[in-house]
Design a protein around this nucleic acid. Structure first.
Length: 376
RNA sequence: GGGGAGAUACCAGAGCGGUCAAAUGGGGCAGACUGUAAAUCUGUUGGCGAAGCCUUCGGAGGUUCGAAUCCUCCUCUCCCCA
């Protein structure tokens, strides 16, 4: 993997760059659709490619390990061969499940024992094991195993957890260096900054991670319920410490506004379930603001879903029809909304990149941030 | 023509003397969702308001301290037999 910094915005910390992987290039800033179990929910892979215009998608170590299982993925020849997406893939390590499945797992220094949400069986994830699994899945970018701390989080817990995540990182790096890809292409390993909402911890963690000189670096443990201002403050602080010549990935973020703020702070990569999950639940993000398509007011609005939207569904279907699909419980509704939202997210990231390249990002961002939060 | 059952909030449907502004489900309306245990979850659904008050259980009367619940008549539905 290789990263080229192409342009730095004069009035913010935003940057435009190019990531080169063995599965193709990624123009940053970029939004990465989430495909936890090897599927971006409700959207065909060809649509992810041609309509959404995604350049990289996510998968999840924990979910793919449980189902379909490593034997199947290995036999298929890696995740891209399995699902037909032959472009870059990033896999999360299961660190988020340490947080989201905290009720059914045991956390120790050695690793985490998850109790499967599918059948209750127990599975131990150590940093070494997580590297091995991601080797089998075959992601172009593998994530270090970490603990995503919850919010709120006591200082002492955050400090201890961060230190453990750092020790886990060293074990991840050790195992990563001892092994190689199974399918003939290169994989990169991104470490993850933790430290909850505490400036000194975030600084300490960012310095620790920066010193590893990895091919890219991630910021984790945010967008777990803390106020947006806190998230922005931590992002800005950490970006100021992480290497400038390596991509920065803000994990799990976020709303369109969150993403623009992140870009302004110097983040290059984002992922979030919002465009798909909220889309399935009737929420549409557009350049004019947010639409809850289930609301009564769209009942007889026969205008396009999003007159300026980038995907074919935006002008092909009307708001009234989409509302009808949701009201009727038709699965086409969530499919249209997911496709629309993802295309919009990718459009937003691409537009941010264009504005950075022509030097007008900061002023454009200020206008967009106001528009994007409007409730239509 | 004879016999029987029933009418409850938007719909279906419990309740059968006070704890009933009335269970439950559906529908409606609104909200939540941030490295996906989510095509999920939550709230609300007679009126005005904070407590509370006011008008509701086909219609009209009656019994009772008290009626959606008991009685009388009326109206209308459904089922069975001719």
């Amino acid at each position: 993997m290789d990263f080229t910094l192409q342009k730095k915005d004069p009035n913010s910390s935003a940057r435009a760059g190019l990531i080169q992987t063995d599965h193709g290039e990624i123009k940053t800033p970029i939004f990465m659709p989430v495909g936890t179990v090897g599927s971006v929910k409700a959207v065909h892979i060809p649509h992810i490619q041609e309509d959404v215009k995604a350049q990289i998608i996510l998968g999840n170590t924990y979910h793919l390990y449980l189902r379909p299982g490593l034997d199947i993925i290995e036999k298929a020849g890696g995740i891209q061969k399995f699902n037909g997406w032959n472009k870059p893939v990033l896999t999360d390590s299961g660190g988020y499940q340490v947080y989201s499945l905290s009720g059914t797992r045991k956390l120790r220094e050695e690793g985490v024992i998850f109790q499967s949400h599918i059948d209750g069986s127990r599975h131990e994830f150590t940093p070494e094991r997580v590297m091995d699994i991601q080797r089998v899945i075959g992601a172009d970018i593998m994530m270090a195993f970490d603990e995503c701390t919850p919010y709120p989080c006591e200082y002492d817990y955050a400090a201890k957890s961060m230190a453990m995540t750092h020790r886990w990182l060293d074990r991840c790096i050790g195992q990563f260096q001892k092994t190689e890809g199974h399918y003939g292409y290169k994989q990169a390993l991104f470490p993850i900054v933790q430290g909850s909402v505490y400036r000194d911890l975030r600084k300490q963690s960012a310095e620790y991670i920066a010193a590893k000189n990895a091919e890219g670096n991630a910021i984790g443990g945010l967008s777990v319920g803390e106020p947006h201002e806190v998230m922005y403050e931590m992002t800005e602080l950490v970006c100021g410490i992480l290497p400038k010549d390596k991509p920065r990935y803000l994990m799990g973020v976020g709303t369109p506004v969150n993403i623009l703020e992140g870009i302004a702070s110097g983040v290059d990569m984002f992922d979030c379930v919002m465009p798909t999950r909220n889309g399935r639940n009737g929420m549409l993000f557009t350049s004019e603001g947010i639409i809850n398509i289930k609301n009564q007011k769209w009942r007889d609005d026969f205008s396009p879903i999003d007159p300026n939207g980038p995907s074919f569904v935006d002008s092909f279907y009307t708001r009234a029809y989409l509302r009808h699909l949701f009201a009727a419980g038709e699965m086409l509704g969530p499919m249209i909304a997911s496709l629309h939202n993802l295309a919009f997210y990718l459009w937003l990231a691409g537009e941010a990149r264009n504005k950075i390249l022509d030097g007008s990002f900061a002023s454009w961002k200020n206008i967009m941030v106001k528009k994007l939060a409007i409730r239509l």
